[in-house]
Nucleic acid binder design. Structure first.
Length: 568
RNA sequence: UGGGCGAUCGUCUAAUGGUAGGACAGUGCCCUUUGGAGGCACUUGUCCAGGUUCGAAUCCUGGUCGCCCAGCCA
């Protein structure tokens, strides 16, 4: 690798407080000679979204930077919400994003150990079985401003606690009748320390442990110890867990086990985007979208189907940074990194989304020529292709105006433009239907301008894409817009729900598009730039002969901007 | 209103007592066989008030504002 490359890479690895912290821990040998160990700990109760991508990049990326390891650990302590389908999708999405784990782990792998440790805490008088109902526990917990009250069962003897907890495990009691609690401090200003529940009774079958257990550990009782078992040195999580850090440490200290350390960072928020797993599930269940992988979804599978690339997502995450502030990154930044990536990699093609017939009156009848077109002007190694041209072609309806507005450089009566890679044409007349709608434009071409240049040096202001009518293929085109109508989806009126801010026009399906014939062989995962239009990919709904393209993103459109300004 | 966390261009983020910088967005110009891409330029910021210091975004004090916590969810 060249010097300048490594320099630019060092510059690209942004300094942030997590990086600095680990660098310091390495410098001071906080963990001796042990390697840096991190983990990505999703609960398999939904699909991963772009917010998780940030956590993944942090957990895996930081470990990588310091020569460490990262485990993928499923936080599967709640059998009522978790499913194998989610486990599978999560593994798939992590790999797709470009990461591979050192070990695949499950919190449920540690259920036996966790139970032994619970026994240990009971024997030490640091945990007790509580017979209070959920409601009574809540009442005893106190409020933000008032301390809680001890449960009447808090002072049970160790023997009684041991007996009861053993019988909880043995399945002697129905769901919800008893819990095991840590004996900490009911007056703590931190509500998480007011005797947190360690185990609840749940006669539910677990997707991995089956019916072995009818008591399941709570997150707080499982997470830190799972980290400890895996000898995780740096346990990164999002800010809302900051208040849990004391309980994370309490269990580790009182059990005397490997001291993993938790550090929190800010969640990723993006404008016009909602990243609540619960609400995303609701969108799916209520069919407000077409599944978890609907291309409008911020899920990784949705973004993938939409045509987003792991490279762009990683670049976006790196650029948006990590801190401890609550903010919301402009969705334009995500779009920028995706366009940037696709601009360099995507082959070009011509496709007319909303066709208007253009007839070249002086073009020899029945003549067909093949013009050469660059596959990617950004990358000469992508080569060229031949595109059929004839006297009847389709152009974009937007590219013709009978009475052009100011600064409109495209085709209008008497105006000469270039057809990309082909000829100069001059509009002569229009044909309208009974309703007065233009159905056909007639023009003449300059045979000397083949390839797109006139030998006399004549300039044109505009270059337009086109598709030969006789050679065009048809395809369904799906255009996507933002899923939410408001930059902040949670900007709600009284009584409104976040789903009331859904953008009613987030999907538009075009069925009359005309595409250049080379696109007939497009395959899943192929990505294209339809010149002057946007980036597109093949949707899995495609079948040979009946192609479906998804628009990943539109190209930036400075004409639309001009038009909007003059219209406003 | 108890506790915790935070506050730097419109947005995200650097600067770790010593020139407030980058990216996105925006604006203007140049260039262009994509009104794409690219190039150049410009604009805008340290929450407030005091203090320490030769010097403060950074340290101190006091405010203000925002986020999180009262699941047998994670």
């Amino acid at each position: 690798m060249t010097n300048s490359n490594s320099e630019s890479q060092a510059a690209a690895a942004p300094s942030n407080f997590l990086h600095d912290m680990i660098a310091e821990d390495v410098r001071t040998k906080k963990y001796g000679d042990a390697v840096i160990q991190t983990r990505f700990p999703p609960e398999p109760n939904g699909y991963l979204h772009i917010g998780h991508a940030k956590a993944i990049c942090i957990d895996f990326g930081l470990a990588d930077e310091f020569g460490g390891k990262t485990n993928l650990r499923f936080d599967d302590t709640n059998p009522e919400k978790e499913e194998q389908e989610y486990v599978d999708s999560i593994m798939n999405d992590v790999r797709w994003l470009g990461f591979d784990w050192e070990r695949l782990c499950y919190a449920s792998d540690y259920f036996d150990q966790l139970y032994e440790w619970a026994l240990q805490l009971v024997k030490a008088g640091k945990a007790y079985v509580d017979d209070l109902t959920a409601d009574e526990i809540r009442q005893h917990r106190g409020t933000l401003t008032e301390p809680g009250k001890d449960s009447p069962y808090r002072s049970r003897t160790i023997e009684e606690n041991l007996d009861l907890f053993t019988r909880m495990k043995a399945g002697e009691f129905p769901d919800g009748t008893r819990v095991l609690r840590a004996k900490i401090d009911m007056a703590s200003p931190n509500l998480n320390m007011r005797d947190p529940v360690m185990y609840r009774i749940l006669h539910a079958s677990h997707q991995r442990t089956g019916d072995k257990w009818c008591i399941y550990p709570m997150y707080d009782y499982a997470h830190g110890q799972s980290d400890s078992i895996e000898r995780v040195t740096h346990s990164m999580c999002t800010l809302e867990f900051t208040d849990h850090q004391p309980i994370y440490r309490w269990y580790i200290e009182h059990l005397g086990i490997f001291p993993s350390n938790q550090t929190e960072f800010d969640r990723l928020n993006i404008t016009y985007t909602m990243l609540s797993k619960r609400k995303l599930l609701q969108l799916v269940q209520e069919n407000r979208v077409n599944g978890w992988d609907d291309p409008r979804m911020p899920t990784l599978c949705g973004l993938r189907r939409r045509g987003f690339t792991p490279e762009a997502i990683r670049a976006f995450v790196a650029a948006s940074g990590v801190s401890r502030t609550n903010g919301s990154t402009d969705v334009e930044m995500l779009e920028h990194f995706q366009r940037d990536d696709l601009n360099r990699r995507a082959n070009r093609a011509m496709a007319v989304l909303r066709p208007l017939k253009l007839v070249i009156d002086n073009y020899p009848a029945d003549q067909v020529e093949f013009v050469e077109a660059a596959n990617n002007p950004e990358d000469p190694s992508a080569g060229t292709r031949k595109v059929p041209f004839s006297g009847e072609i389709y152009i974009e309806q937007d590219d013709f105006r009978e009475t052009p507005p100011p600064k409109y450089y495209r085709l209008s009566p008497g105006k000469e433009v270039r057809l990309r890679n082909a000829y100069f044409v001059t509009a002569q007349s229009v044909v309208k239907d009974a309703a007065g709608v233009i159905v056909e434009v007639h023009c003449t071409y300059d045979p000397a301008s083949r390839g797109g240049n006139s030998p006399d040096g004549r300039k044109v202001k505009s270059t337009m894409h086109w598709v030969s009518a006789a050679h065009a293929i048809s395809a369904e085109i799906r255009l996507y817009d933002k899923l939410f109508a408001k930059a902040d989806p949670y900007d709600l009126e009284e009584g409104q729900d976040v789903l009331d801010n859904l953008n009613a026009n987030s999907l538009e399906i075009l069925t009359t598009a005309k595409l250049e014939p080379s696109l007939a062989t497009a395959k899943l995962e192929d990505r294209f730039q339809f010149e002057r239009v946007g980036y597109f990919c093949i949707d899995p709904d495609s079948v040979p002969g009946n192609l479906v393209f998804n628009r990943t993103l539109a190209l930036k459109d400075s004409w639309a901007k001009i038009e909007k300004k003059s219209g406003a």
